[in-house]
Write a protein that binds this DNA or RNA. Structure first.
Length: 513
RNA sequence: GUCCCCAUCGUCCAGAGGCCUAGGACGCGGCCCUUUCAAGGCUGAAACCAGGGUUCGAAUCCCUGUGGGGACGCCA
């Protein structure tokens, strides 16, 4: 049995910006572990960086977690009996524990001004020494230190790291890891403003919140020995640690903004589905086995084991995310698709304020293009043939224009047939019209359909005409129903024929070029 | 610089000494379908970082090297 007691895990973001997909993956792994084992998932906000933390970021992160479906049982906005869950509201707790450490001589006051520390660091780096705190204030007597602090001299509190000791822990994903304390340097646990520092606050919180498994990014692995020493100082049993590998960009550096979208919010805005993102994120550094790739989140929770998480960093592959997303888009219900696609259509200016009729029209037309789309924000472009028809633009490519000019008879015939015939409400009506054009011109195959496509859709490629033409016809019948008006097939054919006619008479006159 | 972690196709994973002439997925190429582009189906190319051990036998274990990543902060 992998986990003897009920698992309590946590995700502890600092509200200093958007939720990064790498952190989202960490949150996901925690969530999967909790859900898969009937454990508890705690959300704690680490807002001890007063300068950078904002309530806006906190709200944004919470929104993203909820959107992803990574619900938490205990924590901010949900409560629980081990709160408060915002570190800025736990200052008294940190203070009390720091006083204890101080009185036991396990911590000491440090009066080194920040500028001094910066210099130390600079020189250490220059002399190729580890840039750790050199311990200048280590030996100040507690009495002196207290006097200086009470006289108003700014003092941080540092934790005393013992000399030359091996600290070993058994990492659930990496196995046994050992650090010697000599590489460590005494960390600040309480800043001179009285606010706790990360390495200290996490320990207090994880211990008091009874976290059993600390699952976090590999970038924290070298913080672990310091934290273990802190647990020991308080006589607490450290949790089990599990450091999951990092997520990299295509160039193998840490995934960052210069690689493009990195935040959950951006992916949401681009029209990725939450289940696609969680599914894909789970696939970085882990595999459900049996060659399966498309696995819904509940199933992931059932199969996920920390022991199976890979050891090496993984490159974030937008292409594969796109593939996963496409899968979920294809399987989404029409209603949901409509709801999700509407904002994108609005932004494109295609559907500012659609009437109920227009909405039900859009509901029929959106599924036509979803199979060919990786993201929902690509839907407007795929639907451009409806809202954005222009005979002039259809002919802007010279090769296309040449073909169209050669096919002018087909286009003229089409314009005539459509001017007098029935609207092309369905595919049979369309095929009948095509047959008439064929009879009149003798054209068939490509020479028949290519010009017709160009005339009706304004594009040499795209959706099947059998599907597109009825959609155009029905859209045109709608008029201006809070959407951008759609011109009818008859109007389109006439327009293209007219432009082609103008072109022909222009060319009859020798051009000055 | 010091310490820590890591190392299988371009990418993500499978592989826990013989089942490996290394498997799957994304992507890429080809073919099919099709009036077009996609989608879909089929198919192909593509990897065990190097060198030493251990062993009858190593992608799998050990060592060294190399490469990549992380950390060393009054950021988290």
């Amino acid at each position: 049995m992998p986990y003897d007691s009920p698992v309590r895990v946590r995700f502890a973001p600092s509200p200093t910006g958007q939720l990064h997909v790498g952190n989202a993956r960490t949150a996901l792994f925690n969530w999967l572990l909790a859900r898969g084992s009937g454990g508890t998932f705690v959300l704690r906000i680490e807002d001890t960086d007063v300068a950078r933390s904002t309530r806006e970021s906190e709200a944004a992160i919470i929104e993203d977690l909820e959107w992803l479906g990574l619900t938490w049982d205990e924590g901010v906005e949900r409560g629980g009996d081990r709160g408060p869950y915002r570190q800025s509201e736990r200052l008294h707790i940190y203070r009390a524990h720091a006083v204890e450490l101080l009185s036991r001589g396990l911590a000491y006051r440090c009066f080194c001004p920040p500028e001094q520390l910066e210099m130390d660091r600079y020189h250490a780096l220059k002399d190729r020494r580890p840039p750790k705190y050199i311990g200048r204030c280590r030996e100040i007597s507690p009495e002196d230190a207290r006097r200086r602090a009470e006289s108003g001299e700014p003092a941080a509190i540092r934790f005393r790291i013992p000399d030359n000791r091996d600290v070993t822990f058994n990492d659930l994903v990496r196995g046994e890891v050992t650090f010697n304390t000599d590489v460590l340097g005494d960390p600040v646990i309480v800043r001179s403003e009285g606010v706790p520092a990360y390495n200290y606050a996490v320990v207090i919180d994880d211990a008091l919140m009874e976290i059993t498994h600390v699952v976090r990014g590999e970038d924290h692995i070298s913080n672990t020995p310091r934290q273990i020493l802190l647990y020991e100082a308080f006589g607490w049993k450290p949790p089990t640690f599990a450091h999951v590998s990092m997520v990299l960009g295509p160039d193998h550096s840490l995934l960052s903004k210069r690689h493009g979208a990195t935040s959950v919010a951006e992916f949401r805005a681009r029209g990725y589905l939450p289940e696609a993102l969680t599914n894909y994120l789970a696939l970085i550094g882990w595999s459900p086995g049996e060659g399966q790739e498309i696995v819904p989140i509940d199933e992931l929770a059932r199969r996920f084991r920390l022991e199976d998480v890979g050891h090496s960093a993984g490159v974030f592959d937008v292409e594969k995310l796109g593939w996963v997303n496409r899968h979920y888009v294809k399987h989404a219900t029409p209603d949901r698709l409509l709801e999700l696609a509407l904002p994108h259509l609005r932004r494109a200016g295609y559907a500012e304020a659609p009437t109920p009729e227009a909405v039900s029209y859009l509901a029929t037309v959106i599924p036509l293009v979803t199979a060919s789309v990786d993201r929902l924000d690509q839907i407007p472009a795929r639907l451009g043939f409806l809202f954005d028809y222009s005979a002039e633009r259809a002919l802007s490519d010279s090769a296309v224009r040449a073909e169209a000019q050669a096919s002018r008879p087909v286009i003229s015939a089409l314009a005539e047939v459509l001017a007098s015939g029935e609207p092309l409400h369905d595919r049979d009506a369309f095929r009948t019209a095509v047959a008439r054009v064929r009879e009149r011109t003798g054209a068939k195959g490509k020479t028949l359909l290519h010009p017709i496509r160009l005339a009706l859709m304004g594009e040499p490629e795209g959706l099947e005409l059998d599907l597109a033409v009825p959609a155009i016809t029905r859209g045109a019948a709608l008029g201006a129903a809070g959407i951008r008006p759609i011109s009818s097939p008859a109007e389109r054919a006439a327009a293209l024929d007219r432009v082609l006619g103008a072109l022909a008479s222009d060319e009859a006159v020798p051009s000055p070029e």
